[in-house]
């Protein structure tokens, strides 16, 4: 029962660490941003998993149903998703400008160019 009860959290941690690994190990700025998005989506799944109740229903009130899943995590994540894409777009815009200024999006090449200036 323990494994079934914690399986969601463990997969979330695996996804989170995958995103984290991409962010710190990859030198490509676009791939880093995709890694951040992987990390972010894993947090969304964690929150929504916490809100689920056994045999619950979606929190849209109907006559005859009394067992609803917790709506509060849904609200937090709903706004976080849209804010997430807005900040991702800002990051990607910065990457585009870096590419135009340095002609590369590889982290170490940018660093070398800064050093040689």
């Amino acid at each position: 029962m323990t494994i079934a009860g914690l399986y969601n959290y463990w997969i979330v941690i695996l996804l989170m660490m995958t995103g984290f690994y991409v962010v710190i190990a990859s030198g490509n700025l676009v791939k880093k941003i995709i890694g951040l998005n992987l990390f972010q989506a894993s947090v969304f799944i964690l929150y929504i998993s916490l809100g689920k109740i056994a045999d619950g229903h979606a929190p849209i009130l109907q006559a005859g149903i009394s067992n609803y899943s917790n709506p509060l995590p849904h609200v937090l994540i709903l706004t976080a998703i849209v804010v997430g894409v807005a900040t991702t777009s800002l990051g990607l815009a910065l990457v585009v400008r870096i590419r135009e200024a340095y002609d590369t999006v590889e982290e170490d090449e940018i660093h070398d160019q800064d050093e040689s200036m």
Partner: peptide
């Protein structure tokens, strides 16, 4: 599956649609 229909709705439009288009545009 986890009863968060509103969130699924948003993720379908944002994560699958707009994010992918933006990343492809950047690439």
């Amino acid at each position: 599956v986890l009863d968060a229909i509103d969130v699924a709705f948003t993720e379908a439009a944002v994560g699958v649609g707009i994010s992918t288009v933006l990343m492809l545009g950047t690439i």
